[in-house]
Nucleic acid binder design. Structure first.
Lengths: 230, 230
DNA sequence: AATCGACCACTACAGCCGTAGAGAAAACTG
DNA sequence: CAGTTTTCTCTACGGCTGTAGTGGTCGATT
């Protein structure tokens, strides 16, 4: 429907090259620097190619966003679940703090460009509903994992706590990457401390012993994955 | 030095009109929609006016950012300090939670446009050092207040805690405004709960009785928890 | 009162933008 | 190997963008 002409999997199509270049341009020059011709040039493609694969500008943005979703999914795959078993997630506070700190620290240090491009597209999605959809789906996965972890820890409000945990991470990352704290980003140890404090505040009145079953009792429906999924 | 021709206070100059219009365009159409001619049109000025007051595009961005700094300062003035007495800030956990929740809630609900423009400029500042400066100063004020409040509450690491409190707020706001949680922003009560949990987690090992002296305007020097640079 | 200088409106121009379409090249079919 | 369809390259065009410059208006100065 959008513009992706060929989804043939046996050719790693120019679309991913165009998407990667678009993301790079977004980071280096912002929304104003992302143009069809700039992508052609930046990707070493013959002039007009981008204009052919993404006829309109909206289509070009969708290509970039789609590519970014793929990249981000691949980024969290090793951390969240190697196969698709969420049981690989840690189930104690310290383990979760380690994991979260590792993810945030990595995002600040190595994933800076990724994040800037994401913010740029998030802002654009403010004005383009068609981007919003894709964007939200990606976020739901992340949040689902957080809700699941909070549930395992015995939180009495895993939905809200998971959401605020994600928000905390997002805020720390934004501050360190694009905010006023860019000059002195927090160390990984500081992040870890922060996560521990946040979680222990949330769990002050948690059920004393976390339930034995992996995940599964969040207030609303989706929240992550059921224990067994085919 | 930048481009502000006239800082004469007795004429509320076209510069503020231009700045306001630039901010509005930033929100409605993004960076790509902010052009000299669009500002002329949007502000009802004769064509060429914006191009005269802000000869280059960089100058136009600075006008917008300067105006936004003023607007934001005016926004927090009633909440933070009417004169400049920080003693008006609450000094107990619940009072602070109320204040923070009120600020964040207001930002999400009434200050959405303000925030979007701010994010847009923050991203641009990633690539323009001259914007960075102004931007950071505004953030420092906010963070300073947070550090002060945490110090009053007896935090053992007010620098870090204040910073993470601000980051938490920033994350909640971003999520609700431009992030995946835009559809269901948290209620003010939920935000309040979140702040209380965050603060109580930070203050688990706080000094039992908070010090009596009001603040101390912790800029960067004194109370860092880690051996950091000054 | 004439001059002068600041302030401002308007126009010009070179360059880049999104997008469309015509035609070349390649791939596929028989 | 001829024909046909798909995939791509290249060029064109109207419109918008940043920015500089030119001349006009108006108040202040002497």
């Amino acid at each position: 429907m959008t513009t992706a002409k060929r989804t043939n999997p046996d050719r790693p199509d120019r679309l991913v090259l165009i998407g990667d270049t678009a993301i790079r341009l977004l980071v280096e020059r912002g929304m104003r620097g992302l143009t069809h011709r700039a992508v052609d040039e930046g990707a070493g493609l013959p002039p007009g190619s981008t204009s052919y694969y993404a006829r309109t500008r909206a289509a070009l943005l969708e290509v970039a966003l789609a590519r970014m979703t793929v990249l981000e999914a691949g980024e969290f795959a090793p951390a969240l679940a190697d196969g698709e078993s969420p049981a690989a997630l840690p189930d104690d506070l310290m383990g979760i703090a380690d994991l979260v700190a590792a993810i945030v620290d990595a995002a600040i240090r190595d994933g800076r460009d990724q994040k800037i491009a994401r913010y740029e597209l998030a802002l654009e999605a403010t004005r383009r509903p068609e981007l919003r959809t894709v964007y939200d789906e990606a976020g739901a996965v992340f949040r689902g994992a957080a809700v699941g972890m909070l549930a395992v820890l015995g939180s009495r409000a895993p939905e809200r706590h998971g959401r605020f945990l994600v928000a905390w991470c997002e805020g720390v990352m934004f501050d360190a990457i694009a905010g006023a704290g860019w000059a002195t980003p927090p160390s990984r140890a500081e992040i870890r401390l922060g996560v521990i404090e946040l979680l222990s505040g949330m769990l002050a009145d948690a059920t004393p012993r976390p339930p034995a079953r992996p995940f599964g009792n969040a207030s609303t429906s989706d929240m992550g994955d059921s224990p067994d999924r085919s």
